[in-house]
Structures are given as structure tokens and as C-alpha cells.
């Protein structure tokens, strides 16, 4: 037979095993993940409460919504929206600033190449994670309950939500610094603060400003909705307009938020270009 003549005791394919990108175990694990995702998706789809009549009605409702929104209530911009939007920007900026005051010590404490004690690292990490796990709207609800409705609750909510974000990223930037210059400055007998200012800071500075800008951008978006739970800014105007069914005003508020968010994004991109 032909196959017999071809068969050699040690064929090339037996010597070098067939190339595989992933091992059997890896592939099984991946397929398990896909399977679990598909199954949980189907299970959720079957059990979630959806009222089909509402869904069929949706295009009509949307058309109704937009017809009520148009024309927008331009007259309300100078009277109420402008001031509230400025408040929102102030909330975002001051919140970011306050978060910085809290985040820098925590970031230093969390960076393992600055503070050697694992206990202190863990304490800092706990605060950073706790701050990040709670959404800014929940922070706002808590602070509205404590300080009453208004801008102060908004500033504190933005600040406490941002601490985790800024602190985590800044401490990661600190951990990535080149330890050579740190050791060099330490070898001159410099104090702890001098080492921080002259060795760590210059290396972490670009990352620091970029994190700060990034968070400020996010905070402007977030502070726009904090008013829905009473924490001041444009959200309060939006909430009132919605409760009174003043859809033209709602449209004006949404347009204002849209334009401001785009502007902020543009500014952040420009400033980042200069900094880098």
C-alpha cells in the first residue's frame, strides 16, 4: 500500500509537536467563560421584567418627547441655566481641588516605594477602594442628608469620589519612578521631604497633572447630574424642569450640558498637549 511506503519510523510531524497558540487548559477556560456569559445572558433575558407594550410604544413616545422639546426655551438660559451651569463648573473644580488635598497623603501612604510599612499601605488602600466603590450620586445623597441640599454637598461628593481615583493613579505613578535618582538624593543626606520634592515629584509630575485633568473632565460630567439628588448645580434646574414637565427648558439644559462637556474636553486635550 502507498501509505506504508510513506510511513517512516520518525516522521517530522511526530518530532515537532503541532503548534498551538493556547494549551488545552487555556482553551477550556476560555470556552467556559464564553459559556457562562452566554448562559447568564440568556437567564437574565428570560427572567428580567420587561413590558413589551411599553417597548412597542417607544418610538411614538420618543417622537412625542422631541416634539415637546422643540423649540427649546432659549429665554431660560440667561435667567436660570447660566448661573446653575457656572455652579456646576465650580463644584467640579473645587471638588477636584479638595480631592487632591485628601488624595496626596493617601497616595504617598499607598506607594510601596515611599512608605515601607505594609500596614500603612493597606490602610491607605482601604480608604482609596472605599472611596471608589461608592458612586458619586450615593456620596451626594449622604452629604445632602448631612449638610442639607446645596453646593456644599456637591463639592464634598465630587471630592470623596475622586479621592480613590486620583489617589490610586497617582500612587501608581509614584511607584513607577526610577529609584536611581531617589537613592542619589538620599545619599546626599537629604531629608524625607527633600527626597519627595526633588526625587519623586519631578518624575511623577506629568502623570499627576494628566490624572488631575482627566478627573476634572469626569467631574464636570458627574457634577451635572448631582443636582438630581439635590446637591446643587445644573442638575437641580434639570430636575425641577422635568418635574414641572417644562420639556423645552429640559432640552435647553441638556444642550447646555452637551456644549459645556464638549468645550471642557477640548480644553483638556489642548492643555494636555502643552503639558506633554
Amino acid at each position: 500500500m502507498k501509505a506504508d511506503t510513506l510511513k517512516t519510523p520518525m516522521s517530522n510531524s511526530e518530532l515537532t509537536p503541532k503548534w498551538e497558540r493556547f494549551t488545552l487548559g487555556e482553551r477550556t477556560a476560555r470556552y467556559m467563560v464564553y459559556l457562562v456569559i452566554i448562559m447568564s445572558f440568556l437567564a437574565s433575558l428570560r427572567t428580567v421584567e420587561i413590558i413589551p407594550e411599553f417597548l412597542l410604544d417607544a418610538p411614538e413616545q420618543m417622537a412625542d418627547l422631541f416634539s415637546r422639546m422643540w423649540p427649546m426655551d432659549f429665554a431660560s438660559y440667561p435667567t436660570t441655566i447660566h448661573g446653575a451651569m457656572l455652579d456646576t463648573l465650580h463644584i467640579a473644580t473645587l471638588g477636584t481641588l479638595l480631592s487632591l488635598i485628601l488624595a496626596i497623603p493617601l497616595a504617598l501612604m499607598n506607594a510601596r516605594n515611599i512608605v515601607k510599612s505594609p500596614w500603612l499601605n493597606w490602610i491607605a488602600k482601604f480608604f482609596l477602594v472605599a472611596s471608589r466603590s461608592v458612586n458619586s450620586l450615593v456620596w451626594a445623597l449622604l452629604f445632602v442628608a448631612v449638610f442639607g441640599p446645596g453646593v456644599l454637598a456637591g463639592v464634598l461628593a465630587v471630592a470623596l469620589r475622586s479621592v480613590g481615583f486620583v489617589g490610586k493613579l497617582f500612587s501608581e505613578a509614584l511607584e513607577e519612578v526610577n529609584m536611581g535618582s531617589v537613592e542619589a538624593i538620599r545619599a546626599t543626606g537629604a531629608s524625607f521631604t527633600s527626597v519627595l520634592i526633588k526625587a519623586y515629584w519631578p518624575q511623577a509630575k506629568p502623570a499627576f497633572f494628566s490624572i488631575l485633568l482627566f478627573r476634572w473632565d469626569i467631574n464636570v460630567r458627574e457634577s451635572a447630574v448631582l443636582g438630581l439628588v439635590g446637591a446643587g448645580g445644573i442638575g437641580v434646574v434639570l430636575n425641577n424642569a422635568m418635574n414641572l414637565f417644562q420639556w423645552p427648558k429640559v432640552a435647553m439644559v441638556l444642550t447646555t450640558i452637551f456644549i459645556v462637556v464638549l468645550l471642557i474636553e477640548y480644553i483638556v486635550v489642548q492643555v494636555r498637549k502643552r503639558l506633554m
Partner: peptide, 24 residues
């Protein structure tokens, strides 16, 4: 990307009513 999820949610709640569908 521009709008916060909560603002998008407001619009969808109007469109498809209260409940999970708007969230999805």
C-alpha cells in the same frame, strides 16, 4: 459618550417607561 448615564436614563425612562428596559 457625552452624556452621563443618568441623563440618558431620563430620556429612556420617558421612551420605554419605568423599569429594567430603560436601564438596559
Amino acid at each position: 459618550r457625552t452624556f452621563h448615564p443618568v441623563i440618558i436614563a431620563i430620556l429612556f425612562v420617558k421612551a420605554v417607561g419605568f423599569g429594567a428596559m430603560a436601564g438596559i
